[in-house]
């Protein structure tokens, strides 16, 4: 089956973020396709490359990054939600003249159309709300 996964919870703030990660892993292990993972609302913080949790804690954002990289997943961070919350790629950093860009290279900033297009071409849409 083809899934679109919507993640609304921020890493560490909401259990939804790690539930979504586990769901994505389990879906891939069973041979399903993840059409797109769409990070929206506070979920956009998942795309930050600057998360630095204590040594003895689970590295949630690194886990997302490796899942996306190893499976060549399409991970979209909603651009409108991300800009509001200070998650920027190099282009947006330049555009808004900000001091830094922090979006991990495994993620792409794009619009809500990406969510709709993915849903419309998937068998299932599942939301992980915070």
């Amino acid at each position: 089956m083809i899934f679109t996964v919507v993640v609304l919870g921020a890493p560490y703030s909401s259990a939804a973020n790690s539930t979504a990660l586990r769901f994505c892993r389990a879906a891939l292990e069973q041979g399903h396709t993840l059409k797109r993972i769409f990070f929206y609302g506070d979920g956009v913080h998942t795309g930050s490359s600057l998360s630095a949790p204590p040594q003895d804690e689970y590295k949630l954002t690194e886990q997302w990054q490796s899942l996306i990289r190893e499976n060549q997943l399409d991970a979209i961070v909603c651009i409108a939600a991300a800009l509001r919350r200070g998650v920027l790629d190099a282009d947006e950093q330049q555009r808004y003249q900000k001091s830094a860009a922090n979006l991990s290279q495994d993620f792409t900033l794009s619009g809500l159309g990406q969510l709709i297009e993915a849903s419309a071409t998937s068998d299932r849409t599942i939301t992980f709300g915070a």
């Binding site: 929206y40 409108a80 809500l112 159309g113 297009e117 849903s119 419309a120």
Partner: peptide
């Protein structure tokens, strides 16, 4: 915003 995006994509 999501609903408006879906409408824009004629869903």
């Amino acid at each position: 915003d999501t609903v408006l995006a879906a409408a824009a994509y004629e869903q």
